[in-house]
Design a protein around this nucleic acid. Sequence first.
RNA 1: GGGGAGUUUCCCGAGCGGUCAAAGGGGUCAGACUGUAAAUCUGAUGGAUUAUUCCUUCGCAGGUUCGAAUCCUGCACUCCCCA
Length: 430
Amino acid sequence: MPHDLVSDFQARGLIHQSTDSSQLREWLSTPGRRVYAGFDPTADSLHVGHLVALVLLRRVAHAGHEPVALIGGATGMIGDPSGRSEERNLLSPDELAANIAGVERQIRGILSNAGNDGHVTRHHVVNNADWMRGVGYLEFLRDVGKHVPLSQMLGKDSVKSRLERDGGLSYTEFSYMLLQAWDFVHLSDALDCRVQIGGSDQWGNITAGIELGRRLRSRELHGITCPLLTKSDGTKMGKTASGAIWLDPRRTSPYRFYQYWINLDDDDAGRCLARLTPLSLEELTDLDAKRAANPAARDSQKRLAEELTRLVHGDTGLAAARQATDIFFGAEIGQLDDGQLAEIFADVPSREFPLSSLDGDGLQLVEALTDTGLAQSRGAARRTIEQGGAYVNNRRISDVAYRLTAKDLAGAATLVLRSGKKSYAIARFQ
RNA sequence: GGGGAGUUUCCCGAGCGGUCAAAGGGGUCAGACUGUAAAUCUGAUGGAUUAUUCCUUCGCAGGUUCGAAUCCUGCACUCCCCA
């Protein structure tokens, strides 16, 4: 395996800016080097936007180095102004603690199974609150602040752009870069970690750390930023009309996660394959060729969705997502238990009915469609049925007078209604 | 202050005494096609019931008529022109 991380990053389009690449290569030519990326705990889960950095750390591990994930327990209290147009709201200590716990679990999950070629990689997860907490304000100003020229701080994009806006920024957010700079120096002391990677919006913070390392320790630190993932329509990767795509299955089900990647357009899928998956460059070229020859097969999207769903949700998550995909795209729903149904249809609205409504003649399909909100009125429900748009457990029902009875149940007490191609609702009977 | 035009169903916009739940377009919802894309085509689109039919809707309130979205009166709002 070619262990030249820098060339690999370049080939995959992962480098936006970096410090001198020959020095970087030189430093990384010895195995076991430590490379870090930071994650601020702004929510109790990471989202797709964090995936690039996480995958970068996995690549670091693959190249024979040791990834270090830094959780910003301290910096998260302040809020990073980079890439932000408005002042952040401060998190309460409780929220922050919960966020740290959630984020840490996800990071460990992704880094510990980094060995899909068999080996468990050595990695570190650190929290900057651990070394920041004990540092007093005066001490910090003397030891760190004294070595950072104001002109340099004011020159950063994150500060400049905010000062030009109406809202400006607070002294608190202004100071953020000092904390991150100090993190870098601290990690170089404690772990001999000399490379920091991050999104392109982190360049200012990273160089602040490099500068501080030079002044304080006369030490050469290195930095790499990768381009922010954007879609070809200009929007941010991982953002949808209904919100962000999260890594936590409770926020975004494995099915929706999987679907997000399946639905990318061809160019985006190609770019994501290169940047987010461990596929070799040969495999990438191969998929590029297939995509050009037969775009309808959607090989790239499938492979991408598969790789990333397995990475984030594991094999069971991938299996669930696939099963859900089959069902959402027409497969008749056979024998599934209520638990499986609940999992597959996690994102679907549901409605409870008394179990007794299935007795005797049963429940009018028209009524079930309106009660679950799939149809606006009984007339609309009738119309949908007449036009062939109504399904029970994915079986088309075209009889307006159809009544649901116990034999229509998919699980023990669950039944799946659908209107048209995509609108589902779950009816639960109790 | 004077003169004129207007207010229609989710939106735009026809209708100017019965044949009006109201043309047409957009949107939306189904169906076909398709790459879970885009475009295109077909159907539907106030509510209840489908056999018929009933109820509610055309700025608001009254009135004239067997019958009004359409005529009259008053009120509210919007726009334009002249001072």
